[in-house]
Amino acid sequence: MKIVVCVKQVPDTTEVKINPETNTLIREGVASILNPFDMYAVEEAIRIKEKVGGTVIVLSMGPPQVAEQLKETIAMGADEAILVSDRAFAGSDTLATSYALSKAIEKIADVNLVICGKQAIDGDTAQVGPEIAEKIGIPHLTYVKKIEAISETEITLERMNEDGYERVQMPLPGLITVVKEINEPRLPSLKGMMRSKKAEIPIWSAADIDADPAKCGLNGSPTWVKRIFIPEIKCQGEIFSGEPEEQVKFLVNALVGRKIVV
């Protein structure tokens, strides 16, 4: 079983704050982390490997410094990590990103299963996984919360939707995106950390993966960012004052009196 896990380095958006005076992003002290949703994907891949055997290869696209961070996944138990990095990829939207990653997966070759986190916390698009699958020509399923059974040629799983979940069977090779219900990612082990220290992370350029420059980076990205701005929070409210009892009465009157709550 050969499993590829796609991960992304992201700013820790839970740490990002807006300076209310200048209305700008405060970035100081905001660390770059591996996308938390991707850690569930790494964990699930390692669990599959522990169960049925195989290799776990972590794949990422980003600037060269991501290579060091990918070692975390080796410390957890991934066998190798590969970084796709090239100036040609700058400005990639989800389509161009999925193109580059799909080319890398084709170079890795003979992959049975690709696992992605459900989305990255910086962009929240959830698009790259399904787009990779389409580019390689393999089926995909999203929002997977449980793998019931897996072999080299078939996977049976549960995928979430708004009403509950579906049990679905899919032939492999295929791609899945996983949600956090699926597992609890492990911490690295000491032996893993020592192994990761010594690990070499290959960096693949656009040429290495035989990528068509027209499909990479800005040129390969149909979507453009026109504007980025800080969202405004509307302020319209009425803050009650007085004793708690009074405030509660005001509120109940406002809602029941106006027939909003009946």
Partner: peptide, 17 residues
């Protein structure tokens, strides 16, 4: 659409496709 966990809004175009 929101980005960066809702801290930023981005307006996106798809002008040539």
């Amino acid at each position: 659409r929101p980005a960066f966990g809702g801290n930023l809004m981005a307006t996106i175009l798809c002008p040539n496709h």
